[in-house]
């Protein structure tokens, strides 16, 4: 085993074995923070496929988190079990994202960013106004309704720790899936598109097809995270899916290192978990300043360290070659 694998092994064991130690201590909140961070990791891994690998700038990713969450919540309220509801939520979300992708993906980078931003806001306004389906700003489940439980055989997920493990498993699965994709023919096609679309087209990469594929696959991550989120929280309102949430996920990838899977995870930990833990440790009004700091961090990273904090090895090689 090389040192990289060993450190990864210890890191993973830490995430598996340490959180239970916090149960029934004053630090129990850490489990919840880690769970939320895990959801962001899943989202960041999903967006990394479009933004990082294929280089498609998406500013409305939260819309798909929302579609996944709402579909799953509505089905769950109508008596579906968690797994079936999640499967349908994934199907619906991927389908919507496929439709959007098929129509907007021929736009240039910055236009695509604005179009997805527009779609993201439209989705939120739709969920906010469509009272009969989503109970509007009051959120789901409405009074008198309840969500289904999450069960495997006869085991029911009830507390934060249970959901933490569910999320951890999802995140690991997502990371492995991403890694396999990145090193496949598909991943190489995405990289080619990101680096030079015209050159990719000329060497025989079906650019539009692969772009739509990247776009659609990333929706799986968003939908699964959304479904887990509503079942854990037992509540969903349109306010959880604002434009700024989409920006947060983009920041995670940029700060962590575009295209890098380790970067997406690092970015999520830094941007989601760190401020919340610092808030508890430092206390006071620290949390209010966090967006201010993100804004500055985003500008600084893109100017001084465009490859991010944990760049992918391929990206690092490319950048070094340019500097030499």
């Amino acid at each position: 085993m090389n040192p990289k694998k060993i450190s990864l092994f210890f890191l993973l064991s830490g995430f598996v074995f340490l959180p239970p130690l916090f149960v029934n201590t004053p630090y129990a909140y850490i489990i919840r923070i880690l769970g939320i961070t895990g959801l962001y990791v899943v989202l960041a891994l999903g967006l990394n496929l479009t933004l990082g690998l294929a280089g498609l700038f998406d500013l409305g990713f939260m819309a798909f988190y929302a579609i996944g969450a709402y579909t799953s919540a509505i089905l769950s309220i109508h008596g579906w079990n968690f797994w079936a509801a999640t499967a349908v939520a994934v199907a619906v979300t991927v389908f919507v994202r496929f439709l959007l992708g098929a129509s907007v993906l021929r736009l240039r980078g910055d236009y695509l960013a604005i179009a997805t931003l527009g779609f993201g806001e439209m989705t939120r306004i739709f969920f906010n106004n469509c009272d009969s389906l989503t109970n509007g700003p009051k959120g789901l489940p409405a009074v008198g309704q309840s969500m289904g439980l999450v069960q495997i055989y006869h085991f029911t997920f009830t507390d934060n720790l249970h959901f933490y493990y569910l999320i951890l498993a999802t995140a690991i699965l997502g990371a492995v899936f991403s890694m396999r994709l990145e090193n496949s023919r598909i991943g190489r096609a995405w990289t080619a598109i990101r680096e030079d679309e015209i050159a990719a087209e000329l060497t025989g990469v079906a650019v539009t097809k692969f772009k739509i594929l990247a776009f659609s696959v990333s929706a799986v991550f968003a939908a699964v995270a959304g479904s887990i989120f509503v079942h854990w929280e037992n509540f969903v309102t349109p306010e959880s899916f604002t434009f700024w949430e989409s920006v947060l996920v983009v920041s995670m990838i940029v700060v962590g290192g575009m295209t890098s899977i380790a970067g997406a995870v690092t970015g999520a930990l830094l941007i989601s978990a760190l401020p919340q833990i610092l808030q508890v440790v430092l206390g006071g009004t620290f949390i209010h300043y966090r967006y201010l700091i993100f804004g500055v961090a985003l500008v600084l990273v893109i100017i001084f360290r465009p490859q991010g904090l944990v760049p992918s090895s391929r990206r690092q090689l490319e950048l070094q070659r340019i500097e030499d």
Binding site: F57, L298, P306
Partner: peptide
């Protein structure tokens, strides 16, 4: 401050920088 250093970077770089500035100013 935010765009000039990125004149020769990829096209997405100034857009990300602009989002950073936007978040910063709003929170300011």
């Amino acid at each position: 401050v935010a765009y000039k250093p990125l004149r020769h970077a990829s096209r997405l770089a100034p857009l990300i920088s602009a989002i950073g500035v936007s978040i910063f100013l709003q929170n300011l």
